[in-house]
Amino acid sequence: MNFFHRFASPREFFRIAGYTVPWLGGATLILIVVGLYLGLFVAPADYQQGESYRIIFIHVPAAWMSLFVYMSMAGAAAVGLIWKIKLAHVIAMSSAPIGASFTLLALITGSLWGKPMWGTWWVWDARLTSELILLFLYLGIMALYAAFEERRSGQQAAGILAVVGVINIPIIHYSVQWWNTLHQGATVTKFSAPSIHLSMLIPLLIMAAAFMLFYAATVLARARWEVLDQERRSTWVNEYLEQL
């Protein structure tokens, strides 16, 4: 707990995160190179989908991250609201644009994959639709945060919305799934092979780890500058800026 309080002080956070970000960034780069090499050159082509299946090495980790980032954002927002920890709010609001980008990436890569596979850029498939609604939730949180002139109120308001969204995500997910089975039937060939070959699974997991580290690196980097801006009137920031 002592460490936690120390770390949660803006100044310590700024210092420690400053050391961590380059390491996380470097690890991300290595894993992305390895994962893409294994995925694009080593893994065999799919017997049904040919080469175009390879987009899953981006698409699937991005879709996983879109939800993971939402959960971390809402978790951080809840911590900020309950224990009044400023840093938690900063982490939550720094996560929102990153999560929205992952969601957008998942939607775009899904649509690129859909064109050769389904013959259309977009279908109102259950998972595509819930991903789209997730993007709307992210956009709402970002817009609300941006609408407040005072940063603190914006963080709290957007944090409440993020927490409300968490309760709604499973409801939205299942209602969309139910709506989809009702309206469409199984017209689309879903990507649900009984098992995935190891040579495809390994690059997929490496890419997932790379995306996770990418999130960690970018959220800390964003939060650092946010903290610096937020604390711009304190002495340690002025000392830091003079050193530059």
């Binding site: 709307f136 609300l144 969309v176």
Partner: peptide
């Protein structure tokens, strides 16, 4: 307009059912 952006996604399940 912000209110619509925040609330409409949360209304989707009710609309569906």
């Amino acid at each position: 307009i912000l209110l619509a952006l925040l609330i409409l996604p949360l209304y989707i399940p009710i609309l569906i059912f």
